[in-house]
Design a protein around this nucleic acid. Structure first.
Length: 113
DNA sequence: TAACTGACTCGGC
DNA sequence: AGCCGAGCCAGTT
């Protein structure tokens, strides 16, 4: 179907690069891809990530507030926060604790070694 | 075909 | 300081 790698593929690639125990925001990914104003598309891409191989760790992607806004779209809402906790990310009431500390900016981590 | 929605973000009031 | 509206792109109805 997609002869060329679409915006979605790029999003998946970045999300899969997120280190364990780290999280990022839709805007950060969008900005890294050159579409800072298309943060919605990043989220929309996540909506289709369910049948994408290899599986995309969408649970590591949250909004800029560190809120698990997309947990409701997972197979099971609890799976998202449960996975983050298992990776060492403190999550309380769908809110990532020390979000700025666990934040992983692709344009910063992938750009600057 | 045209219109709407959506896992966001920023700016204005 | 908090709430509301507009912008963005692509997929879905």
């Amino acid at each position: 179907m997609k002869d060329k790698f679409s915006f979605f593929e790029d999003v998946y690639a970045v999300v899969r690069l997120i280190p364990k125990g780290r999280v990022t925001s839709y805007g950060a990914i969008a900005k890294y891809l050159g579409a800072a104003k298309s943060a919605r598309m990043v989220g929309w891409a996540m909506n289709a990530c369910h049948e994408v191989l290899p599986p995309v760790p969408a649970h590591r992607v949250v909004n800029r507030l560190g809120l698990l806004s997309g947990k409701n779209h997972f197979h099971k809402p609890d799976e998202m926060e449960n996975r983050l906790k298992e990776e060492g990310v403190h999550v309380i009431d769908d809110q990532i604790q020390e979000f700025t500390r666990c934040f992983w900016d692709p344009s910063q981590e992938l750009s600057v070694e």
